[in-house]
Simulated assay, not measured.
Amino acid sequence: MRIVSICPSNTEIVAYLEQEEMLVGVDNYSDFPEQVMQLPRLGPDLSIDIDAVAQLKPDLVLSSLSVPGMEKNIEGLREHNIPQLILNPGSLQEIAADIEEVGKAIGLPEHGEKKAKEFLQEIETYRAKSNAKEKKPSLYWEWWPKPIFTPGQGNWLTEISELAGGVNLFGEEKEASVKTDWEDVRERNPDHICMVWVGVKEEKMNPDLLRKRPGWLEMKAIKEDKIHVLEESLYCRPSPRLLEGLRKIHSILQP
């Protein structure tokens, strides 16, 4: 099959299914696995060049609603009568379901089911470890610095926090993405701060900026030097690579 992926998380699902050779084009932000960097780039995920997609003559486009604004791509593909599978996972369970669904769509239903089970089995392994812990440190995930956005109850990072043996500081807020402010975070006083600014490489994130915020030097995480600059690609995309992120944050919390 000839597959086009117009979202990094979808590209990573194809990679998890070990079918990268089916990909004939990707969005500008898809950067994993390394070989997709050689494929035709079809524009940023919010404004895909639909004409360029059509020229690739795909059998299937993996489109997405994981970021607000992607609806325009979906409508464009419909207008061009290009076959598409629309993914919109918000939880680890839904990511597993998408692995299975993509497997079926590309003609490998048994393989898709097998890989989805592997994904869920690893999650359950970490869940058992987490359930055995009595004391769970609080994690503040910073998605964006100003204004501050952080994941809430309906977000996979709340699950990742729990599976790693911690608890998301904003995990009881109903929104999937919570807009808050520096003072609110200071008052909640997290045990750990995880910097994962969306779309920003880790080498461009400076922990010293956090130390300069009013009152933040008194926060426990900063006093104990528990600011973690993490790869946003392992935490901000609803893809199977969240497992890699889980392994990493678990090793930080449980050294």
Rank of each mutant, 00 (worst) to 15 (best):
Q121M: 11
E159M: 10
N131T: 12
V198C: 04
T125P: 00
W144Y: 14
S161K: 06
E183P: 01
Y140A: 03
L120M: 15
V167F: 04
L163W: 08
E203G: 07
E124Y: 08
T158Y: 05
N131W: 01
E113W: 03
G171I: 14
L163V: 09
S138Y: 04
I193R: 00
K174G: 00
F119S: 10
W141H: 07
E173V: 06
G152I: 12
K133H: 08
M195R: 00
K135I: 15
H192Y: 05
K136I: 11
A176F: 03
S177Q: 03
P151M: 14
W156Y: 13
L139W: 02
K129Y: 13
G154C: 10
N168Y: 03
V196Q: 08
S138C: 05
M195H: 00
L157P: 07
N155M: 03
E175D: 12
F119Q: 10
A116S: 13
W156F: 12
G165C: 03
Q153C: 05
M195E: 00
G199V: 09
V198P: 00
V167M: 14
D184S: 04
G112D: 10
S177W: 08
A116N: 13
Q121P: 01
M195S: 00
F119W: 11
W143M: 12
G112I: 12
L163R: 06
G166C: 07
I123T: 07
W143Y: 10
P137E: 05
E159G: 05
K133S: 11
V198T: 10
R127K: 13
E202C: 03
P137G: 07
E134Y: 11
I160W: 10
E162D: 12
D184N: 08
L157D: 04
S161H: 07
A116E: 12
E183T: 11
H111C: 02
F149M: 05
T158P: 01
K129I: 07
A176N: 09
E110R: 10
Y140D: 02
S138Q: 08
G199P: 07
W182E: 09
Y126L: 05
T125K: 12
E172V: 06
E110F: 07
